[in-house]
Amino acid sequence: MFTKSLIAGAAALFLAAPAFAEIEIHDQYARSASPMAKSGAAFMMIHNSGDEADRLIAVSSDAAARTELHTHLQGENGVMRMVHVEEGFELPANGEIAMVRGGKHVMLMGLTGPMEQGKTVTITLTFEKAGDVVVDVPVDLERQDHGGMMNQGSDS
């Protein structure tokens, strides 16, 4: 009798829990300016198919001494500059973050080894609600998409 009550209580608790963000990563790739570069970047589409917003708050990788969330902002005289975004990026419910060249991205500084075509870099994305999402990111030094400031998702 006690076992049935315990199982029923656990099931009720599980079913009553709010629906957290459901994170999916698509079209990920990483690159550096050259195989000998000391820094590189990773780009991807981060999709939240859940009914609750979340926030990408941190990033880490063994591929670099320091890994940060960055974006490009227009500074004085229209010159674009790259900045560390300490507060992270808002991920709307049923929405996405476009991490593209010229916009939001993962910055890998102090690379621990060369970024070679066809190799893989493992990156951990940390979300406020969904927790850690580990992503294997292929290195693609030949990709020519130019990113841009359009279709950047939320600016939060």
Rank of each mutant, 00 (worst) to 15 (best):
I123E: 00
I97H: 01
A41G: 14
E90W: 09
E90I: 10
M80H: 07
G88F: 03
S5Q: 02
M80S: 11
T126I: 02
A64F: 07
R31S: 11
G153P: 06
S32G: 15
E52N: 08
N94Q: 12
F20M: 08
M80P: 09
S154G: 13
M45V: 10
Q117M: 01
A98Q: 11
E87V: 11
P18Q: 03
M44K: 06
P35Y: 03
L15Y: 14
I25T: 13
V139R: 04
A42G: 07
M150F: 15
M150G: 13
T3L: 13
I7D: 08
G110F: 08
M82F: 02
G40I: 07
S32R: 11
N151F: 14
K4D: 10
A65V: 04
A30F: 10
E128T: 11
N77S: 12
K104R: 12
V59C: 05
R101F: 06
A21D: 01
G110I: 08
E128Q: 15
N77R: 12
E24S: 14
A65S: 05
M45G: 13
P92V: 03
E68N: 10
G95K: 00
F2Y: 11
M36R: 10
P92T: 02
G148M: 10
I57H: 08
L108T: 03
P18T: 07
K119M: 12
H105M: 15
H146E: 15
E86T: 12
N77F: 15
S34V: 04
F43I: 00
G110S: 00
M82V: 13
Q74R: 14
T112W: 06
S60T: 05
E87L: 04
M99I: 06
D54L: 05
P35D: 10
V133G: 03
M115N: 04
E90K: 02
R101H: 13
A130T: 00
I25W: 06
L69I: 12
A65F: 10
M99H: 02
A98L: 06
V85Y: 08
G102V: 13
M150E: 15
V134M: 10
M80L: 13
M1K: 04
A58T: 05
F2C: 02
E87N: 09
S49Y: 09
L69Q: 10
D145S: 14
D155V: 11
D54Q: 00
R81E: 14
T71S: 13
A65G: 13
P138L: 10
M99V: 08
M36N: 14
A21I: 05
G88S: 09
L125E: 00
A19T: 06
G78P: 02
A10T: 09
D140K: 07
G75F: 08
T124P: 11
G113S: 03
A65L: 00
D54P: 02
M80N: 11
P114L: 12
I25C: 07
M99S: 14
A64I: 01
T126C: 00
K4Q: 07
R66S: 03
